[in-house]
Design a protein around this nucleic acid. Structure first.
Lengths: 227, 227
DNA sequence: TTCAGGAGTTGATCGAAATCAAACGGTCTC
DNA sequence: GAGACCGTTTGATTTCGATCAACTCCTGAA
């Protein structure tokens, strides 16, 4: 891991547009940014482990981070993949200062780190900061609940269809996009083994989905909605 | 549904001890309590439906509330069961004012209702209120993530064992407690069909768990931990 | 007491996805 | 260009839990 003290211009841009800071008046956001540190990680670096003391929470600037639970017998279950602009582990501000999950980078990643103690102080002085943090927490909570519901209601091909639809423009009848990360990572995010993801993609061929490497093409978006 | 305008003394007590309000200095908590309305519901009453406009969020005073996603084809997936002192649907303060899930009472229930607009106002004036709300959101987020991980890592008997262990005192070698709600509700909470819950309980007999109606007896808590 | 209805259990079958194993197709290196 | 390696795909098998159906048990009402 390489730590960088100062944000470059590009990183600052991304950070100010992130879900958390974009909720704040720019003066406030700029003040917080001054207290941020940047961390760069190689691919597959551990960021933190469950049980560790938690001094920071994070906003991803570039790359993707995988957050997962490690079970006693060494198996891993993903509970979230976070990309540019997304904040993770804000929960540690209130749960006793211990990480409940593990996090590692997928590809090489840069992140902004917020010091928990500092942000608690800021939040206790300016209500807007607490509200922005709540918006971020709320977003992550909704996603987690959505995930539980999706897991429990839908089969593998349906979950993959849902994921694809989230990446299609709202009112398009046909679409095409590139997966932002490896298929094996997507499999984990959807709670599937890589083999199951592969088979789910084949099953979606009949609904007009074709896959070439990371490129996904959807022939009929509406057909996919009713899959 | 019967609405009551004023909290009785007992209800006020429970409310002040709830996860949300207990985080606040009592003067602040009392101020908020003045703006709360109380709602009483019969068993199996709908509280709100997904897609509806969200004017309130809730803290349970007595009874249990089931929050679930309703799928297109009419199946339901529970995403949380909330009991006395627990707050649900705070997410609507930040997600555009629409309920993303359905809620209904399990047994007869009384709840305190917070008006979203009023609480936003309060939170924008007093940082402590935002922080207390964050603590509640954070708690619910942790539970949701825990649920995803549990679903993905553990079999039905293991999930039931985990649930039982959460209801055992930390340092006991033997324990006994009463389920606070119907087994069918527990099944939903754990993402199981009622039949699967029943079979899971039988499977746990070999680990020293015996079940008589709603009474659960655990012969060897440590054995259960390693199940 | 009897009957009805709901909750829970038990049994049999089926289906979805995990797992294990092998093959495939890229890319990078030497 | 040959080989090695990694991510992905395909095939065969197994396992877990859903589903459907029948039955038990308990409670409450007539």
């Amino acid at each position: 891991m390489i730590k960088v003290l100062k944000l470059n211009v590009r990183e600052k841009e991304i950070l100010l547009r992130s879900y958390f800071l974009s909720e704040l008046p720019s003066a406030t956001a700029l003040k917080i940014v001054e207290h941020v540190t940047v961390a760069s990680h190689e691919a597959r670096d551990p960021i933190f482990k469950q049980g560790e003391k938690a001094d920071y929470f994070y906003t991803v600037l570039t790359g993707f981070v995988r957050v997962f639970r490690l079970s006693k017998d060494g198996r891993e279950a993903d509970i979230g993949i976070y990309g540019p602009g997304e904040t993770f582990a804000e929960g540690v501000m209130f749960n006793g200062g211990t990480h409940r999950f593990c996090a590692q980078t997928a590809e090489s990643v840069t992140m902004a780190r917020y010091e928990v103690d500092k942000l608690k102080q800021f939040a206790s002085q300016d209500p807007a900061i607490g509200i922005a943090l709540m918006a971020s927490l709320s977003r992550n909570l909704d996603q987690a609940l959505e995930c539980v519901a999706d897991d429990r209601l839908h089969t593998a091909p349906q979950r993959v269809a849902n994921f694809i639809l989230q990446n299609c423009p709202e009112n398009a009848s046909t679409a095409r996009f590139r997966l932002p990360f490896q298929k094996s990572l997507l499999a984990g995010k959807l709670g599937l083994a890589p083999e199951a993801l592969s088979r789910a993609f084949s099953a979606l061929k009949s609904a007009g989905v074709s896959v070439h490497g990371r490129i996904i093409e959807i022939g009929d978006v509406n057909a996919l909605r009713n899959f």
